[in-house]
Design a protein around this nucleic acid. Structure first.
Lengths: 143, 143
DNA sequence: TGCCGGTCATTGCATATGCAATCGAAGGCT
DNA sequence: AGCCTTCGATTGCATATGCAATGACCGGCA
């Protein structure tokens, strides 16, 4: 059998999920002092450079279901790091906007993220991250 | 700034989680006719070639917390695809064992998995999967 | 033999994930 | 203007994820 189709050793899904778990744990650990989850950090990053984003837009950027995004954002809103504002041109849309507290939180989180990123890059080896990123970009182009 | 440490474009955690979501959705979709989740399929694969495995052992193989594994296995037990048996040499251990129904389910699932795997390999491009697998193996060696 | 540190499994809690269904609003078509 | 399809957001449901704490058990050591 083509080893690429041996589910014991070559399931793309299993490998990616496992890798995602292992790497995620390191980022979560690094961000724990600020009580920030990795998704929440990514959201702050995305919002920090944009005036406001629709939930659908952010869900697409993250490749996740809009219902997941909707719920994941709530802790940030509760915490006052993100606010939900109406969009005057379309009453269906509820825009996400980072608050000053959110910006402050982001600034605090940056060095913690940096340490985790350093750690992850080291673990993946010099070629690991470029390889993964290239594969990611290919897939996202096509899907 | 070193672009490797730009959280907007190069967060390893965000990229891996996104990739994992996108790929997982395709496998879940393929396995849906059998009402099987990707984790459940991976469990059947792992158990199909072994007499019995401890929960801790399987959790390590999947790089996940034992509490997550413990709960994720339950639907398979409820369904009769996996049984939990005592380990005579250590009363703490509760071994997981695939049942004949589990084996039949696995056989049914294989072609569905194969289609998803084909799809994923195509999406990642000819070099994508080897690149990812190599990076994965490096990380798992070191962690 | 009895204690004690370590291990396996389980549960409580909070967040993560996606699908189906729903609600309300937008926009095109007549 | 009225209808109909589409679209953005939200909720119900089931599973996914990990940490902390707990209970049961093992093995070593006094």
């Amino acid at each position: 059998m083509d080893p690429l189709f041996d589910p014991e050793t070559n399931c793309v899904c299993l490998h990616l999920r496992r890798l995602s778990r292992v790497v995620t744990r390191r980022y979560e650990e690094a961000l724990r002092p600020l009580n920030l989850k990795s998704f929440q950090f990514s959201t702050l990053v995305a919002l920090s450079s944009r005036p406001a984003v629709s939930q659908t837009g952010l869900a697409n950027a993250f490749g996740m279901d809009i219902s997941t995004l909707n719920r994941n954002v709530r802790p940030l809103v509760t915490r006052g790091a993100v606010e939900i504002v109406a969009y005057e041109k379309d009453a269906r849309v509820r825009l996400l906007k980072i608050t000053p507290q959110g910006r402050a939180l982001y600034e605090e989180a940056l060095p913690l993220w940096h340490a985790a990123q350093e750690d992850a890059l080291r673990l993946l080896g010099p070629q690991g991250w470029p390889d993964i990123k290239q594969a990611t970009n290919k897939l996202l182009d096509r899907s």
